[in-house]
Design a binder for these strands. Structure first.
Length: 817
RNA sequence: GCCGAAGUGGCGGAAUUGGUAGACGCGCUGGACUCAAAAUCCAGUCUGGCUCACCCCAGGUGCCGGUUCGAGUCCGGCCUUCGGUACCA
């Protein structure tokens, strides 16, 4: 009989729900384990195979933890605000609220069919006023501490989505992270969160968390700390100075010219009449260039001379001041001292414009390159001569500090987080703009500022909320005169920066989150989600967590102690997306094979962190595995009834066939635990398959032995195929759910060891035979057996043994001449 | 360009304090069952060679070289693919 998965899976899901098997008792924190998956983005589409790949195995990991005694909290919710719902509304006229609610209802059903241990009491959605109210509240806390501020700045503008974007949401090639459109620069007044205030701590904190090294490295690079000095250069004939930032103060004697960013405020003042035209022309040509052209890697260096000179403070020499687009106004001071001898860019520029080059670090003998950026003794550098780079740096910084012409300085590449969006479907910014009083925060008691339903979403470049007069026009809280609300909404990454706190008490109305509970349950112990969030969500959440700690809302430093990234499932090499039409629907497979088979198949594909290209080629194999298990259990109905089982059996009392199974069983208990614990589900399943292959002759075993094995096998199976395991458990005569009273069996240390081993015998490192020998045989006894072996004799006879290597229970290598 | 990860049968992939390469599964081939097919079960399946049934020999983990009794695993130099980043001073 084929395994009737539909009926059985439904039965067990109902059982779990009725008995509240996965509702977490949050008051019990003894062995608490907060297991979180990045929540769902309920855009137009239903769950696809990628979601199953993310959530299914992750749940299997948590199930193993539950079986081994942990109190698991595993919530799920909806990251419900965002552009896709709004774009869908623009296209179809269906309101984002309505489409989102419908999607959530559909997705909830699909999630339930996966058979995960979600605690549905803890469900949340970010578009509910009871949730986003607290986004606004946190905004106001940041505002109070001057960590939320508004400024006019050049910002990234996506012409397609008609909104600004944070730096983190612009990809390396200058395109919009969401829609792939080329982003342009605009000068606008926008809201920022001062994440840079936490730059150093965000960097340091990485050492304390158990995250993939790759992800930590990406955050380190994104924060981009560089240590060096700020040095002042006087401008000749002007009462002005130019400040530069450099990581190589030791090369100051080699600074043969200076470069200002074309937008630098000093340019206009210091440019001499003779060069005014050139400079203006150059500045204009830069303005008309797109960001992508300007930063193109293959581009040749360009720049113009200003006619002005600065004084190198180290040796008093006049050095020319140029402007060039390779110096960016947005980093450091917008000006550099150029040291062509030790900087490749400066060398290239100096070569092109015939500027002097002085080496101040002696390159190694035979060095034939241009700029030398490595370590070496200083030269042409007066009091630094002979010192290596690190020492020379220190000495130079000390010197400029003494002279009062500079200071030690640390710079970060990280910029503040731009959070305003000119879109509708998000959290309104709780600020009122009053013609008299300026920006006035909404009073906390007036929160939430509810997002109105009636707006015109047609993209105009202006925020859709401006079209709702009732929303926009308010009285100023201070002077009570007519004022207007801020029409922008917050980046949806604000929503996901603190949601893990909210799950613990999702409907609490007196505070953002239940502090008592969250102090016991956070940080999240295990966080699972995509690597694409490395420098977005995962950075913002760390920032929020630290801020919330600083205003005494939480007592830990980091949100996620351990992080695991699931791999990406592609289809024909491309990421699954609706627009490419390559989305693989899980529904087709779950309706044909059931959710256990589909989950098993996704886990069996390969290492979890690797992902891979989708193919349904092997799914028949996992289906066969499931069928065979079901048949096996049907051969032994009620076998466990009236039998009292021991933890361990005595190997000496077992029949030969039973011994083999017993050994394999205990080896599998050990292996599957270790493998699942390390997210290596593929090898855990392989181990279970091996064990199943050994159970062919279970009929010949004693009834006690059958019961012993089948009881354990069901438990081994339960994290990976929970519905099937429950059914098997019941078939042999158990009543409750495996997860109701979690159980995991200890392996029998004695059974791990075989009685005999196959010793590999090598001659000159080449395998010549494997010979069965008793375990732990000593070298001499092994040698005696080996030298009698015909195959070995052939290679050894008539030759001289010059060396022997013996690795106990593994290998015997004889070196002959 | 720089940083990081990865390259193993026809396919997905196993195997690392250096110790029997190819576990487990898919696919394929042959056989059993069947009127037949499907399903299922059994056997075989890295490549090449031979006095290819068993046996035996040689080669083999992207390429070239090295260390070692022994290298998928360590070292040096490349190539390819993927991810991140991009004149950050």
């Amino acid at each position: 009989m084929r395994y009737p998965f539909a009926e059985i899976e439904a039965k067990w899901r109902k059982y779990w729900e009725d008995k509240k098997v996965y509702q977490t008792d949050l008051s019990d924190t003894k062995k608490k384990l907060y297991h979180l998956n990045m929540f769902i983005y309920p855009s137009g589409a239903k769950l696809h195979t990628g979601h199953w790949y993310h959530y299914g195995p992750s749940d299997s990991w948590a199930r193993l933890k539950k079986l081994t005694g942990y109190n698991i909290f595993e919530p799920m919710g909806y990251d419900a605000f965002g552009l896709p719902a709004e774009n869908y509304a623009i296209k179809t006229g269906i309101h984002p609220y309505d489409s989102t609610m419908k999607n959530i209802a559909d997705i909830r059903m699909q999630l339930k069919n996966m058979g995960c241990m979600y605690d549905w009491n803890a469900e949340l959605m970010t578009c509910a006023p009871e949730y986003y109210k607290w986004n606004q509240w946190i905004f106001l806390q940041l505002y109070k501490k001057h960590l939320a501020y508004r400024k006019m700045a050049p910002v990234n503008w996506c012409p397609k989505d008609q909104t600004v974007l944070a730096n983190e949401q612009v990809k390396a090639d200058g395109t919009c992270e969401r829609c792939g459109t080329q982003v342009i620069q605009k000068n606008l007044t926008q809201w920022f969160f001062k994440i840079t205030e936490y730059a150093e701590e965000l960097l340091q904190g990485l050492d304390k968390i158990n995250w993939p090294e790759k992800t930590k490295l990406m955050q380190r690079n994104w924060i981009g700390k560089s240590e060096g000095a700020e040095i002042i250069f006087p401008v000749e004939n002007f009462d002005e100075i130019i400040e530069v930032f450099t990581t190589r103060p030791d090369t100051l004697f080699g600074a043969t010219y200076m470069v200002l960013a074309p937008e630098h405020p000093l340019v206009e003042m210091i440019t001499t009449d003779e060069f005014k035209f050139n400079v203006k022309e150059y500045q204009n040509s830069i303005k008309s260039m797109t960001e992508i052209d300007r930063t193109s890697a293959v581009k040749e260096k360009t720049g113009v001379f200003t006619g002005a000179y600065a004084i190198n403070p180290a040796d008093g020499k006049r050095i020319p001041i140029w402007i060039a687009d390779y110096v960016l106004m947005s980093y450091g001071t917008g000006a550099i001292m150029a040291v062509p001898g030790q900087d490749e860019r400066d060398w290239e520029f100096a070569e092109k414009f015939n500027l002097p080059i002085i080496r101040t670090v002696k390159p190694p003998d035979g060095f034939s390159g241009k700029a030398y950026v490595g370590d070496g003794p200083a030269m042409n550098s007066d009091f630094l001569n002979g010192l290596y780079v690190d020492d020379a740096k220190k000495k130079m910084i000390d010197w400029v500090e003494e002279e009062g012409i500079g200071k030690r300085q640390v710079n970060y590449r990280l910029r503040d987080w731009l959070i305003s969006r000119q879109r509708y479907w998000g959290t309104p910014i709780p600020i009122i703009h009053c013609p008299k009083c300026g920006e006035v925060p909404v009073s906390e008691k007036d929160l939430p500022v509810e997002l109105p339903y009636d707006v015109e979403f047609k993209p105009t470049g202006e925020s859709p909320l401006t079209t709702n007069k009732e929303f926009m026009n308010v009285k100023c809280p201070k002077c009570h005169e007519y004022a207007k609300r801020d029409p922008d909404t917050m980046d949806t990454f604000v929503d996901s920066s603190w949601y893990y706190f909210r799950y613990l008490d999702p409907h609490i109305s007196t505070e953002a989150f239940n502090r008592k509970l969250s102090n016991k349950w956070t940080p999240v112990d295990m966080y699972v989600g995509g690597a694409e969030h490395a420098t977005m969500h995962l950075l913002y959440a760390r920032f929020f967590h630290k801020f919330l700690r600083d205003i005494n809302l939480t007592n830990s430093d980091e949100p996620f102690s351990t992080l695991v990234h699931q791999g990406t499932i592609t289809n024909q090499g491309a990421k699954m997306s609706k627009s490419k039409g390559n989305v693989v629907s899980p529904d087709d497979f779950t309706s044909e094979y059931g959710s256990d088979v589909f989950r098993l198949y996704l886990m069996f594909m390969g290492p979890y962190e690797l992902g891979g290209d989708w193919s349904d080629k092997g799914i028949a194999g996992t289906d066969r595995f499931v069928q065979r298990i079901y048949e096996l259990y049907n051969r032994f109905p009620g076998v466990i009834k009236d039998i009292v089982l021991q933890d361990k059996l005595d190997l000496n009392l077992l029949k030969e066939d039973e011994k083999i199974i017993y050994r394999k069983l205990h080896q599998t208990i050990k292996k599957s635990h270790e493998e699942i614990d390390n997210f290596r589900f593929n090898t855990a399943i392989a181990a279970l398959m091996e064990l199943l292959n050994e159970l062919k002759n279970l009929e010949g075993a004693s009834k006690e032995f059958q019961a012993y094995v089948l009881e354990r096998f069901a438990v081994l199976l339960s994290p990976l195929a929970p519905h099937l395991a429950e059914e098997c458990w019941q078939l042999i005569g158990k009543y409750k759910s495996i997860f109701e009273k979690p159980i995991w069996f200890k392996y029998d240390e004695k059974a791990l060891v075989e009685e005999s081993i196959n010793l590999a015998v090598q001659i000159n490192g080449k395998l010549r035979n494997t010979i069965e020998m008793p375990i732990n045989i000593d070298q001499n006894s092994a040698k005696e057996i080996i030298l009698k072996d015909e195959k070995i004799k052939k290679h050894v006879d008539g030759k001289q043994i010059v060396k022997e290597i013996f690795v106990k229970n593994k290998i015997y290598n004889i070196v002959v001449k």
